[in-house]
Structure formats: structure tokens, C-alpha cells
Design a protein around this nucleic acid. Structure first.
Lengths: 345, 345
DNA sequence: AAGCGCATTGAGAGCGCTAACAGTAAACTC
DNA sequence: GAGTTTACTGTTAGCGCTCTCAATGCGCTT
């Protein structure tokens, strides 16, 4: 069996009766080509199912068609889901993704980043939280004048385009949902005090209650650190109260999982005696039992958008870019599972 | 500032006083080059920190320098950790990894696989469990005469090289460890009956007890399905017994986490009143509290070895390969955390 | 009508590497 | 010692694409 030869730009050019260069221009969108020619070429491209050879392209052009992804904590399912989506989007756009871990931040991290920029010649970078707020790393990228997109950054919002979701609104809405379900006594476990999202989620919770003129006793609110253990301590405190809440909203899934465990110890059936809400929709949320009601971040969309923005060349030169277009807020969704229940009945 | 030009094979050739072709041969290890020349070239390569341009290489050669990774369940932290390691190894070897998801297995999956083989022209494939046991997928790859490595396969062990760990031995040793710590009444939750590893882990547990002449009452052993809920049910049964075990060994971390939750409900402090052991060392094991004692699979090593084997060309033609060299068993390790305790005191 | 500017298209070189073949010198054969 | 093999190294021609620069055509000015 003869091996099918992949169609080349030549084949397209021949069939469309134009030069290779014209096809190249159509495909790269940037040059001036008459609409007529463009259509003609695109038609043939579709017919032949032509897809450019990335390696040839990379070799011939000044672009590398590589994008870099910098992340920090390799364990989070947030990171891995983002990675998977980014990989998929890159493949669809003919880019390759070079992934670099920056945990154990030190001098070597910066070296490695510089190598990524100078040797691998990435066309752009994506920074995941929390590395996206590291000033030294930002400086290196800015000095190289490389376009980059940050995901859910907390500071320096004018440094680069960024993609995030509305943590405040999500917390507001999910709290509202609990209120709709008849809950009036709703506990809250605050996230890590160093992270911006903790503040936003807390405020959303407070404002939702306030908008329904519900007062919260201060002992319903505990400080957590986003980890299971801190959530467990917080939940034990709240559930030891004489007048227990009928629902607890934890600022992330890990802490919500801990609430379930604490409820278990107090023999409070979830959701019959206690509704529990998390945040993030990590793996954990659908591992434990009952499955957690939680807020899902649009991770796939975030990844796709990041790749889109970088490959579009829209922000090719950040110093010239319109900072008003930096902010990209995506929609979240509330996932109702078995850990919450309507108690109006 | 002038942009540093990346060193090319020409530069190396000039400095080493040989032709480009000789350098190429040294780098690709395959041709006959005298030891003297090889050393001379390698020295210059190191000096200039030369690394070949993957795209040029791919363009000029018949190899694509792409490897494919097929996985099945995107959520598992096993998968994502493997992916991360594989990505790293690939980068080090100048390969690129194309990742393809095969969940929701259907006709489209096979199409996508064929495209991976014919259009992307991957040089080899890595199959993660459980997709590595899918006969249709295997057939497509074998028909294409493409080298592939499977991770922890359960069937068809002569079809390809594979990498696994000794589940039996791990279960045996971790059970032994519990016995050393004074436990005599050890419960066990069996894994999903469809998976080979369940059998092996169960047998390891049984044999460890037998080697110490410890009898297990049948009610100490429950069938699980590898998920949290089944683990919870199993644990509730075991912990409802009049004569409770002092330790429970669950066949994976999800079920072990469920044991913790059940223990909580029975107000059995872990590890004081009950030791709990899991298997896999997933993210979950160090999320929940107390952190789980568990068995860690050498995922990073597995990934590195898989890339190594594929890039070495050792198994370039599977039909000619020595099937005796297919089996690669890597060492596991037992991670002792806070969920187990010595009770001999 | 000649000259100019603009928009669009094409020709040829070359990106960095390797396959295939072509040398070259030493080693071996008889 | 002439012919032949062996072991290594060099030369040439692309891989598929995009860059630079030149060419073409067309409307418009003077």
C-alpha cells in the first residue's frame, strides 16, 4: 500500500491556479489578497483538506508556532484540565505547546524561562495562577517584549491581557440559590487570605445575604486556608455551635469536602440536615459522596480563548495594545449535585 | 540588541572541522562514525550548547519526531501526572507529544486515531490504561505497524512492550507493614472486578496474611468498585461488625478516603482506633485528613521510560522485536503518612 | 499620452536539517 | 602489487514553507 502523501501548498496552488505565495498569504490572513482570489483559494483548501506543515512553516518563518505554558502547582486538577484544553486548542491551530513547571521558584526557574524565550523562541506565553502574579517572572517576559496572557491574575492588571471569571458574582449567585432553597442560616468558610479570589467570594456571599436582609452571626464565618485540614477545623467549629446553620458555603471544594467529613462526625446527614456548597468543581467534587454542589470555572473556554488571543496576533506587541481590551471575563456555571437540598417543604 | 542566533549544525561542523553530515550522524547515533570523530563532535556540541532544530529535522527526515499519547479518563490524576512527565521527557529528547483523548469510545475515536497515524505521522504511541486493552484500538495500531508502549495493560501482553509495577508485591508489602505494626485484624476492600490489578492486589493481601498464619474472617473482606461510594458502603459494612478490624486496606485511594469518612461516622479516630491504607498515591491521598498511607506508583519513571523506549528505536518494528524484552516492571514505593499507626505499644 | 502610485501577484532564494549517493584512504585478498 | 572490500566522511539535492523583491495591471494625474 502506497503511503498517502500529505497535500502540500503546491497542490493547492496548482489546483487554484495561483502561486504558492498567494496561497500562503491567504492562509496567513495578513497580506492583501483580493476577495475573489481568497475565496477561490479557500475553496480549494477545503476541497483538498489541506493543512499546512507546521515544521516547514516554522522553519521558513520568523514565527516559531510554539506557545509556552507556565504553571506552578502541578497537582491541581485545575492545572491539568487547563493543560489538556490548551493542548487541544493548540493542535487545532497548528501550534505546539511547551509546558514548563515553575514550582520551587528559584533562580533556575528564571533561567528556564529565559531559555524558553531565547532558545525555543515561543511566540507567546500563558501564565496560570499563582505564578501569573510573580513580579520577577513578569519582568523577564516584559523585557523580552513577548505577548502573554494571564489566567485569573490578582495584581498588575494592566501588564497584560488576562482571562478570569466573576468570582464575586458566582459566590453571590450560589448563595442566592441557597436562600431560594429556604436556607436562612448559612455558614461560610473564607479562602486563603493571600489570594484575591478569597476576598471576592466572601464579598459575594455577604452581599447576597444582605440583599435578602439576612443577618449572619459572626460565629457562622470561619477563616480557612483553601486546604482540607483548615476546612475541617473551620467546619468543626461551626458545627459545634448550639444553633447550627442549615447550610455551609466553603470557598473551595477541598474545604467543602472537609465540611462533609465534619458533618459525618456530627451525624448530620448531607443534604437532609446540612447543605454544603463548594467552589471550583475540581475532581474531588464528584469523587466524594454526596457529590458536591459547586461553581464550575469555565476552564476549557479559558484555555481556548488564551490560545486564540495569542495566535491571533492581536496582542503581538503589548506596549501598543489597547489596555481597555485586556479584560476577558468568562461565564461560570453553578453545578447542583447531591450536597444541597431545598428545605422549604 | 541583536537577537542571539541559535547555533546551527553548520556552526558545529565548522568548529569541529568536519562536515555537517558527520555531525548529523553523531547526533542521530545510527551511522558509523569513528570514536575519535564522535568525541570531537560531541565536545563541540557541548561547548556551543547546540540543540538541533526539531522542525528542520522533521522536515528533512522520514521521522516525524512526534509521539502520540492516548488516554481515556481525563480526570484521573494518574493521567495528568503521566502526561506532565511525558511532556517533560519529550521535550528533553526533542520530540513533541500529541495528546489525544479517547473517552466516549466510538467510531470517531478510531478516525481520530487514524488521523494521528496518517496525518500527524507520529513515530510511536503510548497507551494508558484502560484504553491500552481495547482490542479495536490495538488492531488499528498493529495494522499501521507502528511501535507502541502500553502502561499497565491487563491483556495481550505479547502485543507490545509494556510498563507496569508489581501490584501483587506492593499489596503484599503494605499488608506486611501493617502486620509489623501489630495489626492482626485487617479488613480489605477489593477493587473493580473487571480490572486485573484488583485481583493482584487482593492476592498480595491474602498471601501476606497467610505468610503470617493470620486467618481473615470473610466479613472483613468486601467487594468495591474503585469509587468513593462503593468504598463507603463497604467500609460501613466492615465497621458495623461487632468485632471490628484495627486496620482497613482499600484497593485504591478513593475507597480509602471513603473508609476515613465511615470511620468518622463511627467516631473511630484514625489512626488511633483504625489504621487506613490506600493505593495509588493520587492527589486525594494528600488532600484529605489524615493524609493517607498508600502505595505510590512510579508514574514519572514510567513516562520517562516509555518515551525512552520509543525514541530509542529499539522497538521500531514490533514484529521483529524480542517479546522477552517486552516486560518492564518498575519499583513502587510505600508512602507512610498519618492514616496508619503502630499499635504494639 | 506619458508618468505616477497603488494594489495585487509571482519568482527565486533559503530556513536547518538529513537521505542518498559519491568519494577517499586504509586494510585485506590472492 | 593490483584488485577488492571495509570504514568512514563529504557532496548534493531537496523536505514544504515564507521571505524579499520584482513584475504586472489599473486608475488617475498632469
Amino acid at each position: 500500500m502506497a503511503i498517502k502523501k500529505r497535500t502540500r501548498i503546491q497542490d493547492v496552488a496548482a489546483k487554484a491556479n495561483v502561486s504558492m505565495m498567494t496561497v500562503s498569504r491567504v492562509l496567513n490572513q495578513d497580506a492583501k489578497v483580493s476577495d475573489k482570489t481568497r475565496e477561490k483559494v479557500m475553496k480549494v483548501v477545503k476541497e483538498l483538506n489541506y493543512r499546512p506543515n507546521v515544521s516547514a512553516r516554522r522553519l521558513a518563518s520568523s514565527k516559531s508556532f510554539f506557545l509556552g505554558l507556565l504553571y506552578d502547582n502541578p497537582s491541581g486538577s485545575y492545572t491539568s484540565q487547563f493543560l489538556l484544553s490548551a493542548l487541544k486548542s493548540c493542535r487545532a491551530k497548528g501550534y505546539h505547546l511547551i509546558v514548563d513547571e515553575c514550582s520551587d521558584y528559584n533562580q533556575k526557574t528564571l533561567e528556564s524561562l529565559k531559555e524558553l524565550i531565547e532558545v525555543s523562541r515561543v511566540d507567546g506565553l500563558i501564565l496560570l495562577p499563582p505564578i501569573c502574579d510573580n513580579p520577577e517572572i513578569l519582568q523577564v517576559i516584559i523585557d523580552a517584549n513577548l505577548p502573554f496572557i494571564r489566567i485569573a491574575p490578582d495584581t498588575n492588571l494592566t501588564a497584560s491581557p488576562f482571562i478570569c471569571m466573576d468570582d464575586y458574582q458566582a459566590a453571590f449567585e450560589v448563595t442566592n440559590r441557597l436562600i431560594e432553597q429556604g436556607h436562612r442560616k448559612i455558614g461560610f468558610i473564607i479562602g486563603h487570605p493571600d489570594q484575591g479570589v478569597s476576598r471576592l467570594r466572601y464579598q459575594g456571599y455577604l452581599d447576597a445575604l444582605r440583599s435578602h436582609r439576612i443577618n449572619v452571626p459572626p460565629e457562622y464565618i470561619e477563616q480557612g486556608l483553601f486546604d482540607y485540614k483548615s476546612g475541617l477545623d473551620a467546619a468543626m467549629n461551626i458545627l459545634s455551635l448550639e444553633d447550627k446553620p442549615t447550610a455551609i458555603f466553603a470557598s473551595n471544594d477541598d474545604m467543602a469536602a472537609a465540611v462533609l467529613s465534619a458533618a459525618n462526625r456530627f451525624k448530620l446527614d448531607v443534604p437532609e440536615k446540612l447543605s454544603v456548597v463548594g467552589f471550583d468543581d475540581t475532581q474531588l467534587a464528584s469523587t466524594i459522596w454526596p457529590h458536591l454542589t459547586t461553581v464550575r470555572q469555565p476552564i476549557n473556554e479559558m484555555a481556548a480563548l488564551a490560545i486564540d488571543l495569542l495566535s491571533s496576533g492581536k496582542f503581538a506587541d503589548l506596549s501598543l495594545a489597547n489596555k481597555a481590551q485586556f479584560r476577558h471575563v468568562l461565564d461560570f456555571s453553578i453545578i447542583e449535585r447531591e450536597s444541597t437540598q431545598d428545605i422549604t417543604a
